[in-house]
Simulated assay, not measured.
Amino acid sequence: MIVQDIRAFNRFYTNVIGALDYGRHLYAPYTLTEARVLYELAHSARTDAADLRAELHLDAGYLSRILNRFEKDGLIERGPSERDPRRRRITLTAPGREAAGLLDERARETVGALLATVPPDDRPRLVEAMRTVRTILGGGRTARPEAPEDVVLRDPGPGDLGWIVQRNGALYAAEFGWNTDYEGLVARIVADFAEDHDPHLERAWIAELAGRPVGCVMCVRDEAPGTARLRLLLVEPDARGLGIGDRLVTAVVDFARGVGYRDLVLWTNDVLTAARGIYQRHGFALVAEKPHRSFGRDLVGQDWRLDLRATPD
């Protein structure tokens, strides 16, 4: 009976997936496997062919053909691996990120349309049931969502920019007693990004853990020529200790250096000790600090700078 139930579920779910991709518009012009490779490349900070083979359980020859096509189409670049000189690091180009972003947007819209048919009160049960299936059939692997390898970095989707404003306001009020002036500042930063940002020179990231956002950061143009500014780094308290902040800052530094900025700057306050530690580990130098009264508190503001032309350690 159990075997029959599982087979019946497989048939049902296969039909659901088929309905989601009716007419094969979801992955076009790529195959499902090619779309999965693009997804992994878009959500992993550092990836080589061996990583992809292990994660996706792909034949080496098949994966090689996919990567060759991507390279020919200008979607990826290959270079020496930082971890092992015998390996080749694979990174998405700007067109590659655009292609991955389009696929991700289609997937979100499609799943959103599916969820629209589910009554709101039933959605938590649906998600919990899916999590149970993954946990049991995954041998307990997904029972530990706090594992660092479960964290993915992605572009913001619908509602994520609002989440950035809400969580910044709530978290800094709870942890530091800041008033709504800070939330207003964050809202203006996010609104400026949403209304007028250059996707080739500016970008935002959401850190996702077990299907929920747990962190964010932005890279935007500064007023000084050739300078980018890191803004709104945040990691939820229950997701700290997994290296998420470090990964978010790494994403900003790699992006800013990759698109040709000379300097990366940021403004923070001395009470944010954990964030300052991350900045220091990435080579940022404190260039100025000044007491100020903001957000209902007496603070010491700090300006930090990273020379992107310097050779990374």
Rank of each mutant, 00 (worst) to 15 (best):
I2D: 13
N10T: 10
F12I: 03
N15Q: 02
G18Y: 02
L20S: 00
Y27A: 14
Y27N: 15
L32A: 15
T33F: 06
R36S: 13
L41I: 05
A50F: 01
D51R: 12
L67M: 12
R69K: 15
R69M: 12
E71V: 02
E77T: 14
P85K: 06
R87S: 08
R89F: 00
R89K: 14
L92P: 01
A99L: 00
A100W: 03
L102N: 02
A107T: 07
A107F: 10
T110M: 13
T110G: 06
T110W: 07
A113M: 12
V127L: 08
V127F: 04
T132V: 08
G138I: 09
G140Y: 04
R154I: 04
R154A: 15
D155M: 08
G157N: 12
V165H: 12
R167Q: 15
N168S: 11
L171Q: 15
A173N: 11
R188Q: 12
I189G: 07
V190K: 13
F193N: 07
A194I: 04
A194G: 05
E195M: 06
H197R: 14
D198Y: 07
P199K: 14
P199Q: 13
P199E: 07
E202Q: 15
A207K: 04
L209A: 12
L209M: 12
P213W: 06
V214C: 06
R231C: 12
E236M: 09
P237H: 11
T250I: 00
D254S: 14
A256E: 08
A256I: 11
R262K: 11
V265H: 13
W267M: 05
L272D: 03
R276V: 00
R281I: 01
A285R: 15
V287N: 03
F295H: 10
F295M: 06
W304I: 09
R305L: 15
R305G: 02
